[in-house]
Write a protein that binds this DNA or RNA. Sequence first.
DNA 1: CTGAAAGCGCTTACAG
DNA 2: CTGAAAGCGCTTACAG
Lengths: 344, 344
Amino acid sequence: MKTVTIKDVAARAGVSPKTVSRVINGEDHVRPAIRAAVQRVVAELDYRPNAFARSLSSSRSYLLGLFIDDPVSGYAADVQHGALIRCRERSYHLVVEPVEPNRAGWQGHVQDSIAALRLDGAIIAPPICDTPELIDLFRQSGVPYVLMAPSVEPEGSGAVRMDDHGAAREMTDYLIGLGHRHIGFIQGPLTHSASIRREEGFRAAMAAAGVAVEERLLLRGDFRFRSGLELGEVLLRGPDRPSAIFASNDDMALGALITAMKLDIAVPDALSIAGFDDTASSRAAWPQITTIRQPKAEMAAAAVDMLVDPSFRKKDVDHDTHLMLPHALIVRGSTGRWPRGSAP
Amino acid sequence: MKTVTIKDVAARAGVSPKTVSRVINGEDHVRPAIRAAVQRVVAELDYRPNAFARSLSSSRSYLLGLFIDDPVSGYAADVQHGALIRCRERSYHLVVEPVEPNRAGWQGHVQDSIAALRLDGAIIAPPICDTPELIDLFRQSGVPYVLMAPSVEPEGSGAVRMDDHGAAREMTDYLIGLGHRHIGFIQGPLTHSASIRREEGFRAAMAAAGVAVEERLLLRGDFRFRSGLELGEVLLRGPDRPSAIFASNDDMALGALITAMKLDIAVPDALSIAGFDDTASSRAAWPQITTIRQPKAEMAAAAVDMLVDPSFRKKDVDHDTHLMLPHALIVRGSTGRWPRGSAP
DNA sequence: CTGAAAGCGCTTACAG
DNA sequence: CTGAAAGCGCTTACAG
């Protein structure tokens, strides 16, 4: 299959390659009749511009990179999907680049991607959006980047986020409103800044309601199912067990729920459980888990929009774009009034 | 940051660009001393070849495409991760391209990827590996491709697979061995050829053991959690309910398990449940689900190897490479002897 | 509004 | 073993 080039189109349309280029890229200053003629030939020949030639001569690659720590998580899947769909709409392609900050030489891989692929932009997912060394690599390279849910918002970068603090506070308010006073909190890992913000939201709500936080009921997990399982057991086997458990993400909430089942503690009759993220696992449980909907795909799509947007790309260092997307409290079957049957 | 080019390296090393090119690409016919000198300069200047220039002049893009139907599933995540890791080891990059065969114009998107990106190869995941129109697109383009778990293995293509039939048969044999005779089977969708092979394996085992298949206990699901939930309910609420349920994948098995819990049917005491795939959901349950380990990441990695392998790439149409990877029966807590307490 | 020239940074094919 | 020339398929910058 001989490849059709811009010259073939030009020859057949009776114009110069440059004119074809203009039509392809939707530039102005082409007479409508000529434009139409070129477009017809493009269709006839099924001409598709060679992205490499285009990238080599222009400075754009039409490639965006998604840099992510753990590409297997449900969180990653949602983020990637949101980015992928939007890339397609914008005629970009997405390259997924796993970053392993615990492995020697990870910087080299990142630099390879940046230098070899000439990425037009990068989306940096949590928790590595909080790795200064990584941010520095991008800053030095000059590749525009957007951080997802970073702890700080360095200047010169874009950022998309949700209000983790406010959402955790809402969830806690909701549990308190149900009558819970004795609330266990399964914390996320310190490597994820979001888990710190969520804990602060929890504490703020407790303080505002005048409910004392029992430090022994705060346990540090790692966002994985297994830690919810184990820490749930610590909470539920301990003396004076809590009437509610709020886990910093859904996977851990699911773990706590399973532990409750093992221990024959009825949910929500004898124990309420709440999560965070609205991942598939919160729905694939019985009862389904009350959680916070995090707009993961929307955040990724917004990041793509920012990177593709010419005004963002050519912005000066002081034109940072920071976006905050809305979340929602989703009440499902795993939470209920306390004491059971008490009046609302 | 001025970009370092091959000329810069050549000038500084006192050789021609061609020699630098040879060193970079590990070709022969370079004197060791010169090779070392060039490598030193490459390191000093932190030279990184421009992938686009390289692709434009050679015929390789160092880009592999992963074409996938539903990039959000747990299956997709495992496949992608396996491919990603191996790509990195081989100095390739992975572009993920969602294919939506139900949406008009999907062929155009695929052709764009092939033509614009000049992919060096493509991995086609199930179930779209069974879409003839898609395969034709690749065949016409001349881009080497590997099918994952296809129903047929068209000539001119590579394929990686596992023995779905044999694995389903093993699982069924195992259930029969436990004493089960009354076995419900939740089928996968007809769009996935694997589900057909799994059903055949189930039937073969039943026939071999002389156990009659009760057609009313075979129900068609769609591989999603929800259908396991619903079909599980049909099986368990019906008259003369089965003592075991074998679901064609883990998500549906989990659904059936949740239904059993809702109906207060003890697993595995009153009901055994088995799945297929060994996805995260089979472990994030209580009891954990007995399943078949499918080597998803390994299959994807093998596909990458095939596409990168020069002998595969230049192979004639009759040099098809078809690989079968081993699976494993993983016995966990969701299955037990029947009747309960009977002798092994 | 349109085009001729030069160049992006590599590799291929050919010499020597 | 090494290199000079030509070219991959586009776009940029400049004319007109």
